[in-house]
Design a protein around this nucleic acid. Structure first.
Length: 865
RNA sequence: GGUCGUAUAGCUCAGAGGUAGAGCACUACGUUGACAUCGUAGGGGUCACAGGUUCGAUCCCUGUUGCGACCACCA
């Protein structure tokens, strides 16, 4: 047997072997109950990063756990077409090839995207499988495949018919680089240094009013100046006119409560076409909405000639220069303010007034809020429900349309007279038009399909039920919907989670999932966000190559502490790898001892004679309970911890050390079957090494570990600590003493004869190796030379011919007296005695034991020679 | 401005109303038949600060401070 688990060799073999079994358990398993997770579909452009790996492993632990227990288990895989992200990538590729994508035309461009998708789109799926994701790749769905596309059309037309989708000319967040609208949650604000310019607007012939702005180039779009109605400084100007610098266009000075007297100069320029707040003020005061920029953010023909065609930032520079020359710039102030960006393109967002499609989300949001309030959906950790509520309670209409090419084209056809027909197909739209215009096919006016496509998240919001056949086929819906758990990051609670709930309730009439597990954000070792620019990105594939997939998975699980970001570095994965090796070595020991796998041997149930073997089975049961409840409560960190602890502290450090001299059949069988049962419990987190060892130790006679249920716990098993625990502590104390006196040779342990004599004689064969002593003898009295020690009041003795330093004795003594004084103080507290009489009595007993120990220690000063 | 999270060993982090835990790092010893990707033993903490509840608070409550995230505002 080789030195360690050769992950690079065995992982692919196990993946291959698991395939069929996984596909089978999607369709049928032992039970009729289902367990379903809709995996968040990664971008088709994506490749695996640690964040994916993290969510994926959490989901896979649940899938494997439930699959082992017999559930019909479905982890529904998929890919997202990721409209904007994908379009950017393909456009850049074309550009690199010297092709101007904008000249290709819609159909040709989309064709290119599909080609690219076929070529490299599946990468991430194979990476997920490498990560051990127990999913059936034959079930992979794509948000742009035919069924999904039809579902999107169906959903859109339904919402349109129900009056929830409308088209309107409104101010939206506009990306001048991509030349598309984006939704408000796609905008991220960055705090950065900037300037505040104080500009003088002439009033009459010799007066001025000063406004403050961070975006002077928008002055040409101004429709009014606003002041607070009660502002004594400006009250007299209300109703008068001011003139825009350079153009001399007259605009009214109006009063509006929105004005904050403290900010800037207290005068507020109103530019309805280029600012959200101004847009609303404009509506209130019936102001004209004048756009002064084109779709690329350049100044249009509404501005003085010298500024036309300039990008906003250039226009700003030029304007400031001119204002300065004309003496209209009062002053400039350096400030720090936040600027809206689109992270995808890097563009600074320009608010623009355009025609867009909106979804009225108010009613949908109310239902979604209720679903969580009433507990039909539970957030883990709970506090994320706050984030969810806060957004939904202040929800704005969802801007659905994007002016890009890659995505689901809006199923609305426009007639030249402005009438719109929403239908799933062009033919249906024509039918509607014929009816509306009351004409036949030939004289039907020309219909043009709306060129916009839908926000990618529209199709994502339908994902949990689209992947189950909705709206075409209800068979799988009945079995798997609502799904059980959704695992995702907090950053997409708005983008995805809330919208799935809204659409799920609306279309499928039921919540899409029962639990939302919000997984922590993955950061680097020092708590820094991973980013390409910082160069601190860790590639999970590299970690898998180097340390093995199991090591990575175990590490991620260990770190999955709820409500806290996760810092991960290579050193963490090293620990995982070391643990896998430990497991490997434990199995090597069993092999060397001549383990016996015996199907009929039900160690967990009956017939064990040896206390030590009973003990390890008891420990196994305790461990399984802990592991199971950790998984049930989504405490993957505690689960991983229990996996680690049982193998290392209990199985290796105690049991294996103790049985080194045992050669009986009961022990060999027990050791083997406890280890095998342990493999089952550890399987969900470290599927590869456990599967490998399972097959090896069972000689391939059993079904895969992947579908081996954990053996039921026995409830009547005596789970209280017993004499075995006591003598394990005694052995530990002997080792500790030897360490403290720096003794290397083997000693003899003497036990004073008493009520446990029979137990000691019958069990010395394992106490001896565990304590690392030559012999364990029962004696009536201790000799003069040696070290006395106490465990739970019982007295022991180690023969030791040399002198022992006084300091060791003092150390033990002071630890004991310290314990005692603490205990005494506690016991003397009358209120404690009254409040918790049983606990109080326990402490009294404990103190008595310690007192006895102290007396004995003082009576025989064991350290003097 | 609002909301949420968080503060425990040198580092990364668990934890429970009643004697403070792990891993890494550190110190010493050790290649004895599972394991040097290791073992054995050890050192190391006023559990951020101030109040309150309690017989008892590191744990619960309130406040303060530090750190982080999100939302809003941003003339």
């Amino acid at each position: 047997m080789c030195k360690q688990f050769d992950h690079n060799k065995f992982e692919p073999q196990i993946v291959e072997k698991s395939k069929k079994v996984i596909a089978q358990t999607v369709k049928s398993n032992v039970k009729t109950e289902t367990f379903t997770i809709t995996l968040p579909p990664p971008n088709v452009t994506g490749s695996l990063h640690l964040g994916h790996a993290f969510t994926s492993v959490i989901q896979d632990m649940l899938l494997r756990y439930k699959r082992q227990h017999g559930y019909v288990t479905l982890g529904q895989p998929g890919l997202d077409h990721a409209g904007i992200a994908t379009q950017i990538i393909v456009a850049n590729q074309l550009q690199d090839q010297g092709i101007n994508w904008q000249e290709l035309g819609r159909d040709e461009f989309i064709d290119r995207v599909w080609k690219w998708k076929e070529q490299s789109g599946g990468t991430i799926l194979y990476q997920l499988v490498r990560l051990g994701m127990s999913i059936d790749l034959d079930r992979v769905r794509f948000t742009m495949d035919d069924d999904a596309s039809n579902a999107v059309l169906y959903a859109f037309t339904t919402l349109y018919k129900d009056g929830l989708i409308y088209r309107a000319k409104k101010i939206v967040n506009w990306d001048p680089i991509l030349k598309t609208a984006i939704s408000d949650i796609e905008v991220s604000n960055k705090t950065q240094p900037g300037k505040m310019w104080y500009i003088k607007y002439p009033i009459g012939t010799c007066d001025f009013i000063t406004i403050a702005t961070t975006r002077p180039e928008t002055v040409f779009g101004d429709q009014a100046l606003a002041v607070h109605p009660d502002d004594e400084r400006y009250k007299h100007l209300i109703g008068k006119k001011a003139r825009i610098p350079l153009t001399d266009k007259s605009i009214p000075i109006i009063a509006d409560d929105y004005c904050d007297r403290e900010k800037g100069s207290g005068v507020f320029k109103v530019t309805p076409a280029h600012d959200f707040a101004d847009f609303e003020i404009g509506q209130r005061h019936n102001l004209h909405c004048l756009s002064i920029m084109d779709e690329a953010g350049r100044m249009n023909d509404e501005v003085p000639e010298e500024f036309r065609g300039l990008p906003g930032i250039e226009a700003r520079k030029k304007l400031i220069k001119v204002l300065l020359e004309k003496g209209l710039l009062e002053r400039t102030e350096d400030i720090v303010h936040s600027v809206p960006y689109n992270n995808r393109s890097g563009a600074i967002i320009e608010p623009m007034v355009t025609n867009q499609w909106f979804l009225d989300t108010k009613v949908l949001a109310e239902a979604a809020i209720k679903a969580v309030e009433t507990g039909r959906i539970r957030f883990v950790p709970e506090q994320w429900a706050n984030t969810y509520f806060e957004w939904l309670r202040n929800i704005q209409p969802w801007c659905l349309s994007r002016q890009i090419l890659w995505g689901h084209q809006i199923p609305v056809w426009h007639a030249e007279n402005g009438k719109m027909f929403c239908a799933m197909t062009e033919a249906e739209a024509k039918q509607q038009a014929k009816k509306y215009f009351d004409v036949d096919e030939k004289s039907l006016p020309k219909l043009t399909r709306d060129p916009d496509v839908l926000d990618t998240w529209f199709s994502s919001a339908l994902w949990p039920f689209v992947t189950l056949g909705w709206p075409r086929d209800q068979t799988e819906m009945r079995k798997h919907y609502p799904t059980d758990v959704l695992v995702t990051g907090f950053d997409i609670i708005f983008f995805w989670v809330a919208r799935m709930v809204m659409f799920g309730l609306y279309f499928a009439k039921e919540v899409p999932f029962k639990v939302v597990y919000i997984n922590p954000l993955v950061r680097d070792e020092h708590g820094q966000k991973m980013s390409k620019s910082k160069g601190n990105v860790i590639d999970p594939l590299h970690l898998m190559d180097k340390y093995g997939t199991d090591a990575l998975r175990l590490t991620l699980a260990t770190l999955a502490v709820p409500g806290r970001d996760v810092n991960i570095g290579e050193s963490h994965v090293e620990i995982g790898r070391n643990f896998v090796t430990k497991m490997w070595n434990a199995s090597k020991f069993l092999e060397m001892k001549g383990y016996i796998f015996d199907r009929e041997f039900k160690t967990y149930r009956e017939n064990l004679i040896q206390p030590l073997n009973k003990w390890i089975v008891r420990k196994l049961i305790e461990f399984k309970r802990a592991a199971q409840s950790a998984l049930d409560e989504h405490r993957f960190d505690l689960y991983a911890q229990s996996i680690h602890k049982f193998l290392k502290d209990v199985f290796c450090d105690t049991y294996i050390e103790a049985i080194k001299l045992c050669d009986d059949e009961e022990t060999r069988k027990t050791a083997c079957s406890v280890f095998l049962e342990y493999l089952k419990v550890a399987h969900p987190v470290i599927p590869f090494v456990t599967e490998y060892l399972w097959e090896k130790l069972t000689n391939g006679t059993e079904q895969m570990l992947l579908i081996s249920p954990w053996t039921n716990n026995i409830n009547d098993y005596e789970l209280k600590p017993d004499l075995v625990d006591h003598y394990i502590s005694v052995a530990g104390e002997v080792r500790s003493l030897k360490g403290l006196i720096g003794c290397k040779e083997k000693l003899d342990l003497l036990v004073k004869s008493g009520e446990n004599d029979a137990f000691v004689s019958a069990n010395e064969h394992w106490i001896r190796p565990l304590a690392r002593v030559n012999s364990v003898e029962l004696v009536e009295a201790f000799p003069a030379r040696g070290i006395r020690f106490f465990v739970a009041g019982q007295e022991f003795f180690v023969k030791y011919p040399h002198e022992v330093s006084r300091s060791l004795f003092d150390k033990k003594l002071s630890a004991l007296t310290q314990d005692m004084s603490k205990l005494t103080a506690k016991i003397e507290n009358e209120s404690y005695k009254k409040a918790k009489p049983e606990e109080w009595q326990n402490d009294v007993d404990l103190l008595a034991v310690k007192k006895a120990e102290l007396q004995k220690m003082e009576a025989v000063n064991w350290c003097n020679a």
